[in-house]
Each structure stands twice: as C-alpha cells, then as structure tokens.
C-alpha cells in the first residue's frame, strides 16, 4: 500500500463523514449523524456540535435541500456565529504590550518571532521581551527570531523573575520610543495555581511603568481537544485574555475547539499559524477557517494550504 493511501486512510473517519454528507441525496437521520460526527472529529465538542446540528436542522426544515445544501447552511450558520467580532490587534499604549500566554509547547515563542517579523515589516518599532525564563534555551530561541526580525530583545538570566524581564523590556521600549513590546512567557499548565499567579503578576508589572497591556493573546495548538476550553477559561481568569492565536493549523487537526472558546467565553481568534515559514502567520478569517473545516481536498493535499517561505 502506498504512503498516500495509508495517510488517506488515516483521515478516513473525518473525510468519510464529510463526503457522505456531501453526496447525500436526501436528508435523513444518517446525514445528521454524519454531520455531527464530522464536527466531533474536528474537536468542536459535544455541546457545540449538537447545538449546531439542531440549528441547521431547523433551518433545513423550511427548505428542500440535499447534502451539499446542508453543508452550505452549516457553513452559513458557523460564519454568522463567528462574525461581527473585532479581531484587530489593539495599540494605544506608549508602549503597548502584547502578552503571549498558553500551555507548554503551543508555539508562543514561534508566534512572537513571526509576528515580530510582520510588525517590523509594517514599519513598527518594537522590542521582544524574553519572559520565558524557565524553559532551557527559550531565550536563545527568541533571540534567533530577534536576529531574523532585526528587533532588539531584552532578556534576563535563566530562572530570573519574568515580571522583571517584561518590566525592563517596557522601560527599554519607552526609553527608545518603541511603540510595541511583544512579551513571551513560559508555558504553564493552567492547573498550577502558583504559575498562574505568576502570570497575573507579569501582567500587573508590565503596566507598572510606562506600558499598557493592550492585548493578552492565548496561544492554542490546533490539535488541542476539549481541554482547550478549560485552558481558555483559566487563562482568561488570571490574565484577561483578549484573543486567541490558533497555531499549527497546517496539520490534519481542525482546531474546532476555538468555536467553543468564542461561543462560551467570547474570546475571538485573532491570528492563525499555518506553517513553519516566517510569514506563515495570518489574520484569522472566519470564512477561510470554515471552508478549511469542511474542505477535504485541502486536508488531503497539505501543500495547498502551505505558503512555505
């Protein structure tokens, strides 16, 4: 068996459901089951999936449609649920601080690196704050990105108080008239209350001097399951999260949990990571996201979604 077909089989469960819905000639119980399954397999979660199916059912009741039409209605429902939200990244401080938080390994440092390159290219003057003083070589990792983006970086010793690093970065930015500080933090599991308290402190201290925290961005990995909602809730509680960055969306994971995050907590996705290249961080577009959520072609040929630099 060739690799392509083996990989193809690996995604069968989800692809099958979508294909089955798409080809359905009549609306029956099987179709609703397939639709719900597809949503569940995309990590949308039981509650949201059931709600969505119920809403689509209600709308379909008044129209005579086939499988493809049902999908179209689901997309409309999803887009309307996701739209009408401000997804822009706010400035306005002097300097403004954008704080990046999240559990370990979701891609905070990489996101800062990519965003730094993007913002620098847009002509903004910025500073990196290497606030992850815990993970070995996290500072070196961010320093590599600082080099690439030609952005100054403020760091402390390994194990230093992250609040003081962020404070120093804000002072540094203020002294040089830079408008924006992108502040990294160590990944932390949201159940560790001492680390969550530390995060609250980082946020407070960042505003002690001249800076204003205008964005606190929760980075969520697209492979995250139902735990993502719990993460978002906990981080929102201690750090006043203003938006989500959804990373690693170029894999086979669909990132459906962000639907629940926006529905339940009102926190919108603002940025999406779609590859490892420097420019593979893009603004979140509900239409594109929903299309990708149901596009089996894109999933089957990953190169299509990549714009590797």
């Amino acid at each position: 068996m060739g690799l392509r077909s083996r990989l193809g089989r690996a995604r069968d469960a989800w692809v099958d459901r979508i294909a089955s819905v798409r080809s359905a000639e009549m609306v029956d119980a099987q179709l609703w089951q397939d639709l719900e399954d597809a949503l569940l397999l995309a990590d949308v979660g039981v509650v949201t999936s059931e709600e969505l199916v119920a809403e689509v059912r209600q709308q379909v009741g008044r129209q005579g449609v086939e499988g493809e039409g049902v999908l179209a209605i689901l997309k409309e429902v999803l887009v309307s649920r996701l739209s009408g939200v401000d997804r822009s990244l706010t400035l306005g401080g002097s300097p403004s601080v954008w704080l990046f938080v999240g559990v370990n390994g979701v891609g905070k440092t990489t996101t800062i690196g990519k965003l730094g390159i993007r913002e620098a290219a847009a002509g903004r003057s910025l500073v990196f704050a290497a606030g992850d003083t815990f993970r070995a070589a996290a500072v070196e990792q961010l320093a590599t990105w600082a080099d690439r983006a030609k952005v100054p970086i403020v760091s402390g010793a390994e194990g230093a108080d992250p609040s003081s690093v962020v404070y120093d970065a804000v002072e540094h930015a203020a002294a040089r008239g830079a408008e924006l500080v992108l502040a990294d933090t160590a990944g932390r599991v949201h159940t560790r209350s001492n680390l969550m308290d530390e995060l609250a402190k980082v946020r407070r201290v960042a505003e002690k001097g001249a800076g204003t925290v205008t964005e606190t961005l929760l980075v969520i990995d697209a492979t995250t399951g139902q735990n993502g909602l719990v993460q978002a809730r906990q981080f929102a509680e201690v750090a006043e999260v203003t938006g989500v960055v959804l990373t690693k969306l170029d894999g086979s994971a669909k990132g459906g949990i962000v639907l629940a995050v926006q529905e339940d907590l009102g926190i919108p996705v603002k940025l999406v990571g779609v590859g490892e290249g420097m420019d593979d961080l893009v603004d979140f577009d509900p239409g594109d996201f929903i299309d990708a959520l149901f596009d089996t072609e894109v999933a089957a040929t990953p190169k299509n979604v990549e714009s590797r630099g």
């Binding site: 690996a10 399951g225 735990n227 993460q231 086979s252 994971a253």
Partner: peptide, 14 residues
C-alpha cells in the same frame, strides 16, 4: 501531548 484531541489517532497512525 495529553491535551490532544481527535487528531491524536491520525497522528499516531501516520
């Protein structure tokens, strides 16, 4: 990662 969702199976298979 213990927090992985439905995709874990696809990843493991691949």
């Amino acid at each position: 990662d213990a927090m992985t969702g439905q995709d874990a199976v696809n990843v493991a298979r691949a």
